[in-house]
Amino acid sequence: MTTTPPPNLDADALIQSAPLPTRRTLRRRASLPLQVLRFGVLNVRMLRMVGKGHGDTRE
């Protein structure tokens, strides 16, 4: 059990120094054609993850 507190509990400072998405990034997150593509990519990645780890193994 670690008794040393984490280096920084000042959440407000941490959040304020985090990268802020640009307008372009925000537009991309809502862009219909791009998000259709990302949806496909996400599904492929999910299926690959499921295929790797949800398969059948024996003792």
């Binding site: 862009s31 998000q35 593509l37 949806f39 993850m49």
Partner: peptide, 17 residues
């Protein structure tokens, strides 16, 4: 390769699916 984070409408559709 199998550990990722993504924000967007596509991820929302994934949740609905």
């Amino acid at each position: 390769k199998d550990t990722f984070g993504e924000i967007g409408l596509g991820a929302h559709w994934l949740k609905l699916l």
